[in-house]
Design a protein around this nucleic acid. Sequence first.
DNA 1: AAACAATATATCATGATGTTATGAAAATTG
DNA 2: CAATTTTCATAACATCATGATATATTGTTT
Lengths: 316, 316
Amino acid sequence: MKIDPNHLQMLAAIIDSGGLSEGAAQLNKSQPSVSRSLAMLEKRLGSRLFEKGKRPLRPTELCQTLAEQGRVIGAASAAAQTAVELYSGGKAGTARIAGTPIFMDGVISNMMASFQSAFPEVAIHQTYGYLADLSDQLSVGNIDLAICPVSPEGVPPPLKFRPILRGRNVIACASSHPLARQSAVKLEDIAAYPWIAPPAGSPLYSDLKAALDSIGITDFRVSFTGGSLASILSVMAGSDALTVLPYSVVFMQRAAKTITALPVRLEHPDRELGLLWHEDRPMRPAVRRFQKFLEAEFKGLADRIDERGRENVWRR
Amino acid sequence: MKIDPNHLQMLAAIIDSGGLSEGAAQLNKSQPSVSRSLAMLEKRLGSRLFEKGKRPLRPTELCQTLAEQGRVIGAASAAAQTAVELYSGGKAGTARIAGTPIFMDGVISNMMASFQSAFPEVAIHQTYGYLADLSDQLSVGNIDLAICPVSPEGVPPPLKFRPILRGRNVIACASSHPLARQSAVKLEDIAAYPWIAPPAGSPLYSDLKAALDSIGITDFRVSFTGGSLASILSVMAGSDALTVLPYSVVFMQRAAKTITALPVRLEHPDRELGLLWHEDRPMRPAVRRFQKFLEAEFKGLADRIDERGRENVWRR
DNA sequence: AAACAATATATCATGATGTTATGAAAATTG
DNA sequence: CAATTTTCATAACATCATGATATATTGTTT
């Protein structure tokens, strides 16, 4: 008959703690229980494990050998235990998240960085996508959480949505831009500059058109299009081109001081940045923790943006 | 609650065998049993271990982590299992044996060598001692088996004795000795040579005196005394000294051709070489196997000695 | 849609393990 | 050396996990 790993652990506990009673205590069992288990084991193995009639208990040669394996087993069990605890506490595991490129690169990536310093055992798998794609990936189960600007009524039933930042787009330009120095910006001024257009399929692209439309600019010249945020920022920093970006993205770049937002109020799109997930699919603890983390970070971000907002006055 | 190592092994089995049913088979359990255990484990951990509604079963991240520990546990269990089997089969373990120096060095050491090549996992702890000492050590439990010349009635009750070679002492000398060439040896011839005396306390020492007495030699000159067998053999080989040795010891040296026995029949001591052990103390398998091995070896040795004995005619 | 394969559930029997109370034996102490 | 203390073994009973077989359910395949 196969040896029970628990029994091997028991031997190790008895030897290491120097006695049957102490061993029992270490195993959170009563002394009689251990005594009986030991007797059964000896009977099955057909060999003594502790020398007869000796007290303090003296382990047999065989017992020592078995106890070594018991210690290995104990270590493995403990490792499993902590693995479970880490996992259940959301401090280990994998979170597969996806979102629109500009937000992921411009806002979320910073937060992921601090999350990873706090919980280095959580692996984050990040991908990009727009709403339709994200919905699919969520439904199929390829990702756990999506971050995307969504109009609340545009969320299909199996998905849940939680807003984390109210949408507000701004016109962004290099800090060295001529318009950046002006306290008031007129539409005619704006019309003179070329535009950086976000990737064609992105919501930002339609935002750009809608926004410009709303302030009366219908005809505009696109000097650059299709890049990711890093390209956009570089191009913008090194030219007089303008673009439309979520204010949060511009805000996150404030430390670098390379770009700034013009004091022009754009038409609000009917979308809010928020988290999307599949309602029926139970969320893994690591994902849940990441979500909580994101929500807290965004709350902080929103507060700081509001503060700054009170200083800057947004005008039409 | 603590995780059961068996459950971890189960996870490893399911994953490695690629299915719940196969895993169950690998564990020698029924499929329903494993299914239920799995369900219980998932409930306790509060996390899925296999993705829901997927077939073939796809292990969760956590499950993979736990299964790794399960594999470690499986390996340790298997090691324990084989350790038990080796031990129980007497193919591993320790045998603590002791005996009179001359026999241990001259006869037993050879047998220990072949035993160790056959069973390298058995550790042999060898010590030396004479009867009184050996009895004590056996009673105290410091040794498992003693090899000693004993007069059968001289065995104290708690000990058991089994003869393995009938005692027969001979006068030994270097092969190059003047007497070695003579087909007949007279007592006067013998009297002319000095003697090597075995260690003072040894049975052989009294044997020497008794033997010489029996052939009428009362006054003899001792030229060397107190050494172990190796010293005795060296001294004997390089001088004309004589000594009394068990014939088996001389016989074992036949390959080296350095010493030989004189064709003189000595008085038989009332002792037989045999094995001593403690009757009440259960013998460990490795010791038992060693004992059987010794008995077989000695049987072979006795046969070969008898063969040789038929050729040599021992004379008074 | 049907057939197949794999897994889940139900039910009952059994065995290991848990508990408390108590007995026995070895070791320590006066 | 007897008495005490410490430590382990045993008894009796309750409980839970696990074993088996039979059968239902579900996912996949044709």
